[in-house]
Every structure is written in structure tokens, then in C-alpha cells.
């Protein structure tokens, strides 16, 4: 019981659904999953979607020169593991009006893997 309370409390703090702590991510698997994003994204360059290097810690809608949707610019989101997990699960529900018209990634493990990969993606100096 104590464990359940603790998990719930951690979930409340981190934003993960109660009793569903995020699985550990695997960056190598995440790199393979990232191929799904290639139509619109790359790590280094803005494409139909913004670049992803340096994503964690960045305010949503803040890459200079990228033409974001007003909804994304106004979202107030700062990208971290918790906010990315929620967004990747259901982009259009989390940010209604986002240009990312994508149903989302249902698998918590796949989201964790992708986040692990993106967490390590640094922008070239």
C-alpha cells in the first residue's frame, strides 16, 4: 500500500499517469524508432517540423526562425521527459491546434525509448 501511494505521488509530481511509471528508455531502440519521424524532422535541421537536437529543456515553439503553429507557441510547455511523454502519446489532444497531425505513440516503452534517444541529441557546436 505504501508503495502504491509513493508511485502515485511520484506520478503526480512527474506528470506520468498514476500507477503507470514510465519504463526505462533505450536510446538505441529510440534511434530506430526515430526513423518514423524522418518525413518531418531531423536532429540538426528544421524541416516540416523543427529540429530536435537540444530538445529537452527547450520551451515549446522556441526554435528561432521556425514557423510554429500559434497553439504550440502559446502552449507554455517546456520539453522534459514527462511533457514529451504526454505529447507523444496524443499530440493533438495535448496541444490542440498543433501542426503535428499525428495520432501519437501508444506504447509507453516506445515513447520512453524515443525520449531516451532525444535526450542525448545535442546540437552541433
Amino acid at each position: 500500500m505504501r508503495l502504491a501511494v509513493a508511485v502515485t505521488a511520484v506520478a503526480a509530481i512527474t506528470g506520468f499517469p498514476a500507477a503507470m511509471a514510465a519504463p526505462a528508455g533505450n536510446a538505441a531502440r529510440g534511434e530506430a524508432l526515430y526513423e518514423r519521424c524522418f518525413a518531418c524532422h531531423s536532429l540538426e535541421n528544421d524541416r516540416a517540423g523543427p529540429r530536435h537536437c537540444g530538445l529537452l529543456g527547450r520551451r515549446a515553439g522556441s526554435v528561432p526562425g521556425f514557423d510554429y503553429s500559434p497553439a504550440m507557441r502559446a502552449s507554455g510547455i517546456v520539453w522534459n521527459a514527462a511533457t514529451l511523454d504526454r505529447f507523444l502519446a496524443a499530440p493533438t489532444a495535448v496541444v490542440p491546434g498543433t501542426s503535428m497531425g499525428y495520432a501519437g505513440i501508444a506504447s509507453a516503452q516506445e515513447r520512453a525509448d524515443l525520449i531516451a534517444y532525444l535526450s542525448a541529441a545535442r546540437c552541433p557546436a
Binding site: E35, R36, F38, A39, C40, G101, Y102
Partner: peptide, 18 residues
């Protein structure tokens, strides 16, 4: 091929949200 694979995934993700 990588771009085309990404396009497949993008459209697959878009189909349910129209």
C-alpha cells in the same frame, strides 16, 4: 528510402486524426 519510410509513418499517424 528513409524519407519514404518516414512519410509512411507520418501518413499512418495522420489517418486516424482526420
Amino acid at each position: 528510402a528513409a524519407l519514404e519510410k518516414g512519410a509512411v509513418s507520418a501518413y499512418l499517424g495522420a489517418v486516424p486524426v482526420f
